[in-house]
């Protein structure tokens, strides 16, 4: 299988007011097409930074990083990925439909095509009835679903998600996780997903990357043996609990350094 994201010995050092901070240290990782990879770890472990590097929102200090066989910046300009942020970040002056069509306008899709795609992706996230509403008229969970629709609109193969459900309550989060999984199964996209919730990471992923801080690095990579088809109650199975246990052990090992 060809790798969508390939990082070798990635290092990134930030200059802050009180000295240098090593955000990423020797990060090496391959993500194959169609995988769902979660990044988990305490704050400061570099999981978001790594995702931003893939998106070319940050530039690594050293090491090599390729996305779809190109450099990260080339991939960004080729619109290789959709990015979902921690907050929905919808423009309050645009309706949900016009928010979803924003990337399409920027990328110069014809009007007719824009309208068709907006309809399609809103259907996909169950928001078809809300196309004409403004973001502030929707609940937080619906807003985040709209922002996922926005990331799906231009049909990039790669989906980068930075704690997209972090601000939502657990019931809404469960629901969205389920929807996200079925979406992933239907569209066969590659997903990179940052989270700090162990159940979320285990439930969603085919591969779990455990990271730890100071310096930000990978401490464990766990391939999940769970089947692709996952009902919510899979979380009560012994297999699920065992993977969760291994992730927790990995996180604890990372913590013992400080």
């Amino acid at each position: 299988m060809s790798s969508v994201v390939s990082a070798k010995n990635l290092n990134l050092t930030f200059d802050t007011g009180d000295g240098q901070v090593q955000a990423l240290s020797c990060v090496t990782l391959d993500v194959a097409r169609g995988e769902f990879v979660s990044f988990i770890g305490p704050s400061g472990c570099g999981k978001t930074t790594f995702l931003r590097c893939v998106a070319a929102l940050e530039t690594p200090t050293s090491g090599t990083l390729s996305v779809n066989g190109m450099s990260a910046d080339e991939a960004r300009r080729a619109r290789a990925y959709g990015y979902v942020f921690q907050a929905a970040g919808l423009y309050p002056w645009r309706t949900i439909g016009r928010n979803v069509s924003l990337p399409l306008e920027i990328m110069g899709y014809p009007r007719e095509e824009q309208r068709r795609r907006v309809k399609d992706v809103l259907q996909l996230v169950d928001l078809a009835a809300f196309e004409g509403k403004y973001p502030w008229q929707l609940s937080g969970g619906m807003q985040q679903r709209a922002s996922i629709a926005r990331a799906l609109a231009f049909d990039a193969d790669l989906l980068l998600m930075d704690e997209p459900f972090g601000a939502l309550d657990e019931i809404v989060r469960d629901h969205l996780n389920e929807q996200l999984l079925s979406l992933w199964a239907r569209t066969e996209k590659t997903c990179l997903f940052v989270t700090h919730s162990i159940p979320e990471a285990v439930y969603l992923s085919t591969k779990i990357v455990v990271m730890s801080p100071r310096p930000g690095r990978i401490t464990d990579i766990i391939d999940s043996p769970l089947p692709r088809e996952r009902p919510l109650d899979i979380r009560d199975t012994a297999e699920f609990i065992e993977i969760a246990h291994r992730v927790r052990e990995g996180l604890r090992a990372g913590h013992s350094h400080d």
């Binding site: 960004r76 970040g89 423009y91 002056w93 924003l102």
Partner: peptide, 29 residues
């Protein structure tokens, strides 16, 4: 306009003019 919203425009590979017209001028109103 927030840093996140400007990052979003970058992920779309938006030009300076597009960011100004679609994000920053409306946000400045």
């Amino acid at each position: 306009s927030g840093a996140m919203q400007r990052d979003l425009m970058r992920t779309y590979g938006a030009s300076y003019g597009q960011t100004l017209l679609k994000l920053r001028l409306p946000a400045a109103m």
